[in-house]
Nucleic acid binder design. Structure first.
Lengths: 132, 132
DNA sequence: CTGCATGCAAAGGGTTTGCACCGGC
DNA sequence: GCCGGTGCAAACCCTTTGCATGCAG
């Protein structure tokens, strides 16, 4: 997860981190871009993507590869789980009763060496519920 | 899941279904296209996409929205789970010991009305394991 | 015949990348 | 000053769509 290559804290990178930390919403790259642009109007979307990628590769933030949707980013790099609103795509953290492990639930791994679970809950967020 | 609009069994649609049934690999749209093209050389990729979409909307096949990857299609429309190879992306069915429900594992849904789980196991497929 | 399905090609959305310049350290 | 980071724009990949034509029922 960590690399030894030099790592420069540019103003762009710092601002991206700050905005990501300030957002509880697990924003998409474009949402991060829009927020950061208010403070650094000349930043480019490419820079946002490159930084989110770099920060995720170093384990500073977490990349959420949403099934069939836009990628989102999470300031909290610790392993945890999410609910995603099936209407608007909003993502929020959830807490499990007990940790879940593959061999707890898996009967037959079909010849694969299982190394993890990708799990996400689907739901309807408060805003979308009241909107109906 | 079902629609009342007329549903024509064209040769393209039939061939796509047959090839999907014959493939145990949960192929991507392009993989289906390549297979079908051997039998119907003039078929277009757009037709494959449209048919896979239509068939999924009618519950005849299942669309697998893979996190951070290409969409895949499953001939079996029943709810079941998959392992995905983190190296080559191959997908295979797995069997669970017991069914899993959201409120079994979820402590705090964070205000969401939870309607489902999206779950996928990650692993290394036999082919990639022996290749290492 | 009717109107859904097709082939083709162009457009679309999200993400990545090549390149010359910029600026942390 | 070195070399990683940036802005810009073009390229990229996968998927969707508009349109005229084809063909199943």
């Amino acid at each position: 997860m960590e690399s030894n290559r030099a790592f420069r804290m540019t103003s762009q990178r710092r601002t991206i981190l700050e905005e990501l930390k300030g957002a509880m919403t697990h924003p998409t790259a474009d949402e991060v871009y829009q927020r950061v642009r208010r403070r650094l109007p000349r930043i480019s979307l490419g820079t946002v993507y490159r930084n989110l990628e770099t920060l995720a590769a170093r384990g500073i933030i977490r990349k959420l590869d949403v099934p069939g949707g836009q990628r989102r980013f999470d300031f909290n790099p610790e392993l945890h789980y999410h609910v995603r609103c099936v209407h608007c795509g909003a993502v929020r953290d959830v807490v499990l009763k007990v940790p879940i492990s593959p061999d707890q639930v898996l009967k037959d791994p079909g010849g694969f060496e299982v190394v993890g679970i990708q799990m996400e809950f689907l739901g309807i967020c408060p805003a979308c519920r009241s909107r109906q």
